Simulated assay, not measured.
Amino acid sequence: MKWSDCAVQDLKKYSGLKASIDNVEERIEALELKFEGIKVNKSDKIPAHGGGSKLEDYMLDNIVERERLNFLLEADRKILGIIERGLQALDNTERLVLDRFFIHRRKDHIGTLIEELGVEQSQVYRIKDQALYKFTIHMYGIEEY
């Protein structure tokens, strides 16, 4: 895969990744509360098909899901940190251009950038290409393989 394609994919998923982290944290908290409630309820002593009771199976499912979500959360945080490191390397204009092209893209993003920056369309594309390259170098630390 071409380096620019990887960078564009990372930028496009940036907002969703930030929201995902909040959602996963809330899901883990909810599962922890449910687990506390499960430990209090000890009424189910009948073994299920797996050998344990339904309560034990439910507790195990809860533990497994929390662990899975914790791994996902850790990975998402690392990816988000890498993307943010790339964005921090950009100046305000470069960050604005990449934001409008990939993160918060709207219908007339190029026209809006032309007006805001007071430049021609070709200059907007040059800024985008330079910013994408700079972003990639700071994210991954390499130019090409």
Rank of each mutant, 00 (worst) to 15 (best):
S4T: 14
C6M: 09
A7W: 05
Y14Q: 07
S15T: 10
G16Y: 08
G16M: 09
G16C: 01
G16R: 07
K18C: 06
K18M: 01
I21S: 06
I21K: 07
N23Y: 04
N23F: 00
V24D: 04
E25Y: 04
R27H: 05
R27S: 11
I28W: 00
E29H: 05
A30T: 10
L31A: 02
E32G: 02
L33H: 00
L33M: 06
E36V: 09
E36M: 01
I38F: 07
K39D: 01
V40S: 04
N41L: 01
K42R: 08
S43Q: 02
D44F: 07
P47D: 01
A48C: 15
H49W: 11
H49Q: 11
G51Y: 08
G51K: 05
G52C: 04
G52V: 09
S53F: 14
L55V: 06
L55T: 04
E56G: 05
D57T: 10
Y58L: 15
Y58V: 11
L60P: 01
L60D: 14
L60G: 03
I63R: 14
V64F: 13
R68K: 08
R68Y: 08
L69F: 10
F71R: 14
L72H: 08
L73H: 08
L73R: 11
E74D: 06
E74W: 00
A75H: 05
D76N: 13
K78H: 09
K78M: 08
K78S: 08
I79D: 08
I79S: 08
G81H: 00
G81D: 04
G81N: 09
I82N: 14
R85H: 09
Q88S: 15
Q88E: 14
A89E: 03
N92H: 13
T93E: 15
V97N: 10
L98E: 08
D99Q: 06
R100A: 10
F102W: 14
I103K: 11
I103A: 04
H104Q: 15
H104D: 15
H104W: 13
R106P: 00
K107H: 11
D108G: 03
I110F: 13
T112A: 04
T112E: 14
E115K: 05
E116C: 02
L117Q: 06
V119H: 03
V119S: 04
V119E: 08
E120T: 02
E120L: 00
S122V: 03
Y125V: 12
R126A: 13
R126F: 07
K128A: 06
K128F: 09
K128D: 11
D129T: 02
Q130T: 12
A131F: 09
Y133G: 03
Y133I: 10
Y133L: 04
K134Y: 06
F135A: 02
I137L: 14
Y140V: 12
I142H: 12
E143R: 09
E143L: 11
E143H: 10
E144D: 15
Y145L: 05
